[in-house]
Amino acid sequence: MEVRTIKVFTTVDNINLHTQVVDMSMTYGQQFGPTYLDGADVTKIKPHNSHEGKTFYVLPNDDTLRVEAFEYYHTTDPSFLGRYMSALNHTKKWKYPQVNGLTSIKWADNNCYLATALLTLQQIELKFNPPALQDAYYRARAGEAANFCALILAYCNKTVGELGDVRETMSYLFQHANLDSCKRVLNVVCKTCGQQQTTLKGVEAVMYMGTLSYEQFKKGVQIPCTCGKQATKYLVQQESPFVMMSAPPAQYELKHGTFTCASEYTGNYQCGHYKHITSKETLYCIDGALLTKSSEYKGPITDVFYKENSYTTTIK
């Protein structure tokens, strides 16, 4: 009895394709271990004539594949690729409408935090270190965002349907971005203890939790000093293409032309909904596939993004 075979390709990165001759009487799992086709788990399936010449994702289970996976995804987590594939199996079914010149995501599976993050990423200057993220990001900007969303979920250790947080998501993504040249110098002034300067680099240099107003941050924000008295913390120097200011959701007025974009969060910790506000020729609110415009805006804002380049204080 002759062994019926077909020729397929296996890959971990969709760049390096490895030619395989597979036995049609055995499952993919018996031949390769966990195997995925377009995100779908085909591990328990036997090869079919229609699979001839198709590319299958496999887990990096030998040295060659491990090197290829690390170079593309910059992670050695053995569960990463499987999590990416199972997320992709959902995100490829989502709709990605162009809204006001940006790629958004039609609401499904509690994905409003991903839509808000995706919209924000198209408006701030950011370059990702893992080629996987950078490639998928370019495709997302062009309207094909399924891979990018699935990668975000995998890097953030999230599953489809789980509630997510924009600030946490951005923080994970910033860790995989090139923020080497970003720098922030802060000064804390206390009447009792004097003053202390701190220099922050990388992710810490672009994120701040405690106030939404970048102007206020430049002037000074009140913080408790270690001595128990009130101290003032203010920005001395900022070198970065953008800054992200966050605070627990509270009524906040966004003035046209003073910011790049913002995240609105309605609801409580267990259950809520994100919308995205962007400042173009007027203010726009993007909620999944829905767009509304207004000249002014007041609502429960939790993150505001500002364009920056270089700032030095005039406070002496």
Rank of each mutant, 00 (worst) to 15 (best):
E2Q: 09
E2K: 08
V3T: 14
R4Q: 14
T5A: 12
T5W: 12
K7T: 13
K7P: 13
V8P: 05
V12W: 00
N14S: 10
N14I: 00
I15G: 14
N16Q: 08
N16Y: 01
T19G: 12
Q20C: 07
D23S: 14
M24C: 14
M24F: 11
M26C: 15
Y28R: 07
Q31D: 14
Q31F: 13
P34T: 14
G39E: 11
V42N: 07
K44P: 11
K44Y: 12
P47R: 06
H48T: 09
N49M: 15
K54P: 03
K54Q: 14
F56N: 04
L59G: 10
L59C: 14
D62A: 09
L65Y: 08
F70Q: 09
Y72T: 08
Y73Q: 10
H74L: 10
T75G: 06
P78S: 13
F80G: 04
L81M: 11
G82A: 15
R83S: 05
R83L: 10
M85E: 11
K92R: 12
K92T: 07
W94E: 06
K95L: 14
P97S: 07
P97K: 11
V99P: 15
V99A: 08
N100M: 14
L102W: 14
K106A: 15
W107L: 04
W107Y: 07
D109Y: 00
N111I: 04
Y113R: 06
L119W: 00
Q122A: 04
Q123T: 05
I124C: 08
I124M: 05
I124A: 07
I124T: 08
L126H: 02
P131Q: 15
Q134G: 04
Q134H: 10
A136V: 05
Y137E: 02
R139I: 06
R139M: 11
A140S: 06
A140T: 12
R141N: 10
A142M: 13
G143R: 03
A145M: 02
N147Q: 13
F148Q: 06
C149A: 08
L151H: 00
I152Q: 04
L153R: 10
A154R: 01
C156W: 08
N157Y: 08
K158M: 02
K158N: 02
T159F: 11
V160T: 02
L163F: 13
L163I: 09
G164P: 07
G164R: 03
G164V: 06
V166G: 03
T169Q: 09
M170F: 10
M170K: 03
M170T: 05
S171G: 07
Y172M: 15
L173Q: 02
F174V: 03
F174I: 02
F174L: 10
H176W: 14
H176C: 03
N178C: 11
N178M: 06
L179N: 00
C182Q: 05
C182P: 07
R184G: 12
V185Q: 01
V185H: 01
V185L: 04
V185Y: 05
V188S: 07
V188H: 05
V189K: 13
C190T: 01
K191I: 03
T192W: 04
C193L: 06
C193R: 01
C193V: 02
Q195A: 14
Q196M: 11
T198E: 12
L200T: 09
L200Y: 15
K201A: 03
K201G: 05
V203N: 01
A205C: 02
M207D: 04
Y214Q: 01
V221N: 10
Q222A: 09
Q222R: 10
T226V: 14
C227Q: 01
Q230S: 12
A231S: 03
A231N: 01
K233W: 05
L235R: 03
L235T: 05
P241H: 07
V243A: 02
M244W: 04
M244Q: 05
M245Q: 04
M245P: 00
M245E: 04
M245I: 12
S246F: 00
A247V: 06
Q251L: 11
Y252I: 09
E253P: 03
L254V: 09
H256Y: 12
H256A: 12
A262M: 04
S263W: 01
S263D: 10
E264W: 08
G267L: 08
N268P: 08
Y269G: 07
Y269K: 09
Q270M: 13
G272Q: 10
H273M: 01
H273I: 02
K275W: 00
S279N: 05
L283M: 07
I286Y: 06
D287C: 07
G288P: 05
A289H: 15
S295I: 07
S295Q: 15
E296D: 14
Y297V: 07
I301N: 00
D303Y: 02
D303R: 02
D303M: 11
V304Q: 02
F305C: 04
F305A: 00
Y306K: 00
K307H: 08
E308Y: 13
N309V: 10
Y311G: 03
T314P: 06
